[in-house]
């Protein structure tokens, strides 16, 4: 790890100021991804801006037909929050399946979404639950947010302040854990909003994506059987040491059917 200046602002404006003024300042949430990167000297920022003392970034609240989760809310708090469990149990379940207890108590929803790891769970939740990413500058719709492998629509220095989820009639998340890391080899969020069904996949492609064919089929008949033969095309999926694209395509099909079965 190289030396850097450490800042711990108590409001968002102050954090934004440091980001704007310093040469290569980076935001620090729970440090679950950032700190290992620094230790391996893969990133060498001049400044770290710790968001941990900004109260406005923490917590969960209901807002009309939405659920707003502050960027600095850790996964364990989302998993155990009575508000989340009541509003979107599938989201609480998703958060509870991330990593291990230590990771869930440090890792944050804002850090996860900003990092846009192709194998992270939250992106499936954000896209599947038609969420809006709220930043210090604007609001970004889920379908526009994840733009590629570790890439998002965030501009340099933009700070995620919260994520607003829409409340579905019913939703379920199914995940196939990576045997080593615990991340998603594939994860599928199925959400039924009454007038529309969303099916979002993580882990299988460079970033979270929706499956139109499955959404249409479920719109017509919300049953596992409706998904037969609708596995995604393996040609568009990731292949790595742990799972081939062909296997991932198969997993997505199984997970989607199981998600539907769980709530049909």
């Amino acid at each position: 790890m190289r030396n850097f200046d450490y800042h711990r602002p108590t409001d968002i404006a102050a954090a934004a100021r440091v980001l704007a003024e310093r040469e290569d300042a980076k935001l620090l949430a729970g440090g679950m991804t950032l700190i290992p990167t620094l230790k391996q000297r893969l990133a060498t920022p001049t400044d770290l801006v710790d968001l941990g003392r900004i109260a406005a970034l923490k917590g969960v609240r209901r807002e009309g037909n939405g659920l707003v989760i502050g960027a600095m809310t850790c996964h364990a708090d989302v998993a155990t929050s009575p508000v989340v469990r009541e509003a979107i149990p599938a989201l609480a379940s998703l958060a509870g399946q991330i990593g291990d207890p230590a990771v869930r108590h440090r890792g944050t929803i804002g850090g996860s979404v900003a990092n846009a790891d192709p194998a992270a769970d939250y992106p499936a939740g954000v896209v599947g639950l038609d969420a809006t990413v709220i930043t210090d500058r604007r609001e970004i719709g889920a379908d526009d947010f994840f733009t590629g492998l570790f890439e998002t629509a965030l501009e340099p220095g933009e700070i995620i302040t919260a994520i607003r989820f829409l409340l579905p009639k019913r939703a379920a998340y199914q995940k196939f854990r990576h045997p080593a890391s615990g991340y998603a080899v594939a994860g599928v969020m199925v959400a039924d909003f009454g007038d529309a069904v969303r099916v979002a996949v993580t882990g299988a492609g460079p970033s979270a994506f929706r499956l139109d064919a499955m959404e249409k089929a479920l719109g017509a008949s919300f049953t596992p059987g409706a998904l037969e033969g609708l596995n995604p095309d393996a040609l568009e999926l990731l292949t790595d040491m742990h799972a081939s694209a062909e296997y991932r395509a198969h997993l997505v099909g199984v997970l989607a059917r199981r998600a539907v079965a769980a709530i049909a």
Binding site: P179, A180, S181, Y183, M241, H242
Partner: peptide, 10 residues
């Protein structure tokens, strides 16, 4: 390729 516990399955 399996250079860390993220890839090596303990």
């Amino acid at each position: 390729l399996t250079g860390s516990f993220m890839d090596y399955g303990m």
